[in-house]
Amino acid sequence: MEQEHFFQCPYCWEEISMILDSSVRQQTYIEDCEVCCNPIEISPTFEEAALIGFNAQSIEQ
């Protein structure tokens, strides 16, 4: 099951959205910001298809 989630990009601070797959309980992956194209590490957590945790952070140290 897919759902759209809105959040702020950790690079350009613009509000963006991504489609999240709630069929996988916990996941981490890299996706580019649709505004500034920088890579963001996305870590959503689901419980019974409900989003219970979400983290979006830059991959630069």
Rank of each mutant, 00 (worst) to 15 (best):
S43C: 15
N38W: 00
V24A: 01
Y11V: 09
F7D: 03
I19F: 04
L51G: 04
C37Y: 05
D32S: 10
S58L: 08
Q57E: 11
A56H: 05
D32V: 02
A50C: 11
M18Y: 13
G53Y: 15
E31D: 13
C9H: 05
E14P: 01
E48G: 07
E4N: 15
A50N: 11
F54W: 03
I42D: 05
P10Q: 03
N55M: 13
E48T: 06
I19T: 14
A56W: 11
S23G: 07
H5F: 15
F7R: 11
A49Q: 12
E34M: 06
I16K: 06
I40Q: 02
I30D: 06
M1Y: 15
I16R: 03
R25V: 06
R25I: 06
L51H: 03
Q57R: 15
P44A: 01
W13I: 09
T28R: 07
N55Q: 14
D32L: 06
Q57Y: 05
T28H: 02
I16T: 04
P39H: 07
E41L: 08
S43N: 15
D32H: 11
F54I: 02
I59D: 07
S58V: 04
E2D: 13
E2Y: 14
E2I: 12
A50P: 00
Q27F: 01
S23W: 09
I16F: 01
I59A: 09
S17E: 06
Q57W: 02
E48P: 01
I59N: 12
E15D: 10
E15W: 08
T28W: 00
F54Y: 12
H5T: 09
Y29E: 05
C37L: 03
I16C: 08
E2A: 12
